[in-house]
Simulated assay, not measured.
Amino acid sequence: MATNHGDGASDLLDHVLVPVANRKDARVTAAELRRHSPAHVTVVYVVQTTTGAPDKIPASYSEEMAAESFDAFRERFPDADDHLTYGDDVVEAIFSAADGIDATAIAYRAREGNRLMQFLSGDLSLRLVTEAELPVIALPRAEGPESN
């Protein structure tokens, strides 16, 4: 569990925000995060919207995916809060959610993807790590049956 170090600073794992992309990602990320025993967790799902154009995925489908992701995450963290947010910039939406819940850190697991996909997506992991105003914990990619 999280501890207070007596210096007035909150512990890194007091309230961790965890972005997830889908049910499988939520399960694997929760399994990896569980090893670190955070005191409180909020799982966030960002419904990506497009300004001035139709969205790629209907909001109702994205909201259903979010609910499935939250349920999968709660298999490991039954008391986790959830946060559904919308935005055209996923990284900014994550930062806004972290600020809104007073998170002490963001914990995420890098997703699979080749260099071209990373380039086309703006490499969300790189932006998440380099632009954050609070600590970002990069969880290892899990190996084994849950990662499949």
Rank of each mutant, 00 (worst) to 15 (best):
E133N: 14
R74P: 04
A39P: 01
A132Q: 06
A103C: 03
A93S: 13
A39K: 08
E131P: 01
T51S: 09
F119M: 15
G122H: 10
G52P: 00
A110M: 13
I106S: 06
A97P: 05
M117F: 09
D82V: 01
G100D: 11
D25P: 03
R34G: 00
Y61E: 12
Y86I: 03
H40V: 06
L116V: 15
K24C: 01
A105W: 08
S37F: 11
F119G: 03
A67D: 15
Y45S: 08
V129I: 15
Q48R: 15
S37G: 02
F70Y: 11
H36M: 08
I101Q: 01
E75A: 09
R35E: 06
D14G: 02
L116F: 15
D81G: 09
L120M: 14
S125T: 10
V18D: 00
A103V: 05
H83G: 00
N114C: 04
R23M: 12
A53W: 15
A39S: 09
V44F: 05
A138R: 02
K56E: 13
P19C: 02
P135I: 07
N22D: 15
I137A: 01
D11I: 01
R115G: 06
S121H: 12
V28N: 00
A30Y: 04
L128D: 02
R141I: 08
I57C: 05
